[in-house]
Amino acid sequence: MSLTHLNSRGEAHMVDVGDKTETRREATAGGRIHMRSETLALLAEGGLPKGDVLATARIAGIQAAKKTHELIPLCHALALSKVEIGFELDEANACVEVKATCRLTGRTGVEMEALTAVSVACLTLYDMCKAVDKDMRIDSVRLLSKTGGKSGDYRRNETADDPRATAPSSLAAPSRDAATNRDMPMITGESPDGHISIAPRNEQPCIQVKFLAELRERLGISDIDIPLESLPSPTVAGLKQALQSHDTRFSLLGERRVLCAVNQVMSADDMSLTDGDEVAFFPPVTGG
């Protein structure tokens, strides 16, 4: 027996409940986020402060496809039978190619769902990586193909408008690049050691925790969201305990010199915390 919300690689995806009639609609959209090659390398090895980047972006894309009708005024609410989000890490061009495929059996097309999924997956990649790279650029959000429906099938002629296809370097070895992309590891499921995946935003009451200056560098992490319910008590002391049970490195927070601010006001261990509070830990100040 297998879990139907996980595919063979353990990645989360929506289950295909369609394929029952002839009126099947499918659309695939693509988009790209360009970043520095160092950022891409960090993303590939799971070294980014917010943790499991691709898994989070995949869930964000799936969620966005389901909410398209809330965002685009004249879109119908659709019962999508399948949403699939894929990532290709393109080292040669220092970008991540995001693809989303949406499918349903019904009377309306799903290209807006696929485009929305790609856009939000790209935005999530930006959000997850922006701590180390603010120069990232999202572009080429486009419909790649659609099938079914009155207007007939459509397939984009990628060689005509893909800037990478006209670049001399990709002309030289396009097939090898494609092979490299497929060999890139997918990062899903458990985070690499020392990194903590964030919970999907707004799903549960959370405390936003920040680490500043030397403390951030010693911990190797700048931001994490900690579910309020994981705190043994709703105080700064409880938050420290919850962090330490996540990862022993957070025992650093027990040092006397580590200071704490709750919602940007200096606070002691007994300060109480509620949903949405911003808690920052930092070393003694050295300005002036």
Binding site: L212, A213, P283, V285, G287, G288
Partner: peptide
């Protein structure tokens, strides 16, 4: 103002020297 700024305002200095980088310690 300078005495309080140096001990109460959240600023942190990291120094880059010939022999490496380090965060300045409080005095």
């Amino acid at each position: 103002i300078m005495d309080y700024l140096k001990t109460r305002a959240p600023f942190w200095k990291k120094e880059h020297t010939v022999s490496g980088h380090y965060w300045v310690a409080e005095r």
